Computed example of a mutant assay.
Amino acid sequence: MREFAEDERPRERLLRHGPEVLSDAELVAIVLGSGLAGENVVDLARRVLDQSGGLAGLVRADARSLRRFRGLGSAKAAQLAAAVELGRRVQRLAPDDRPHLGSPEAVYGYVAGRFIGRTKEELLVLALDARGRLLGAPATIAGTVLTVSVRPAEVFREAVVLEATGVILVHNHPSGDPTPSPDDIRVTKELAAAGRLLGIDLVDHVIVGLNRYVSMRRDGIALR
């Protein structure tokens, strides 16, 4: 990854800020490790994703089919196939191994520690199966400010890939007051409508403050 300034390299950005802030191409680039002459590793990763049909296509590929891409020899194809298989195995964990998020209390208990000390708003998207159990890892939209519209494509992207039947949104109010703002209510209504078009239920939107929270579903705010 010598083509990048040190603070722009995907690996260093992951170590500094966490994997949530990286794009799909940057995460794939870390798995691949290096690019080609005239094509840096992020561009290589982006090309592989584009030609695979995105993450949804990539997860259906095996090591042999990955080798058809220019720049993916046996080693890189095996690394990528191994990473994809680990993701599959996480999704196949027995239901008892995955958190059941069937109540606002369960959601708050699962996420509350994540927001301790955060000074900026962060939106989590929890994808659920039909029984209310978490699928995969929470998707994070870092630095989200709900005074502007959140793109439905960002919110529902992982849920579509995971074939989720529902999602729960969680975001924090660094002020400590979890009372929903007018923008929180507006954005929640917009995302609920977008979810209906995709066949994915917006189960709840939980707002976390200082040692307390609000469930918009339970309180009949925007979600009924």
Rank of each mutant, 00 (worst) to 15 (best):
P180A: 10
D184C: 01
V107I: 14
G102P: 13
L101N: 08
R98E: 00
R89K: 15
L169C: 12
T165L: 01
A159P: 06
S175M: 08
L169K: 12
G143W: 11
A94E: 13
R98N: 10
L197V: 12
T140Q: 09
H100F: 14
V148T: 06
S103N: 11
L80S: 11
F156G: 11
L198N: 06
L124D: 00
L198T: 06
L93A: 12
A78D: 05
H171F: 10
G136R: 12
V206C: 07
A83T: 00
T147R: 15
L101A: 10
A112C: 13
D204E: 04
R88E: 02
E154A: 13
I116T: 04
G166A: 15
E122Q: 11
F115G: 07
L146Y: 01
G136T: 09
A139H: 07
S175R: 13
V145T: 01
I207D: 01
V160P: 08
L198I: 08
L80C: 09
V107K: 09
V187R: 14
V206I: 13
P104H: 12
S175A: 11
L198P: 09
A77W: 04
L80H: 12
Q79T: 01
I185M: 10
A139I: 00
L126W: 06
I141C: 07
L198S: 09
I116P: 00
H100Y: 14
A142C: 03
A130E: 01
I200A: 10
P152N: 09
R151E: 04
H100R: 15
I200F: 09
H173S: 11
E85G: 04
T140G: 06
H205Y: 12
Y108V: 10
E190W: 03
A193I: 01
T165S: 13
R151F: 05
T140L: 15
I207S: 07
E122L: 06
G117S: 07
R68K: 15
G199W: 05
R186D: 00
L197W: 04
A159W: 06
D204F: 12
T147V: 05
V111F: 08
L93V: 00
T119Y: 02
A192K: 15
P95Y: 02
V125S: 07
A83P: 02
Y108I: 04
R67D: 03
V203Y: 02
T140W: 07
A94W: 04
G195T: 02
A159V: 09
P95H: 03
R68Q: 15
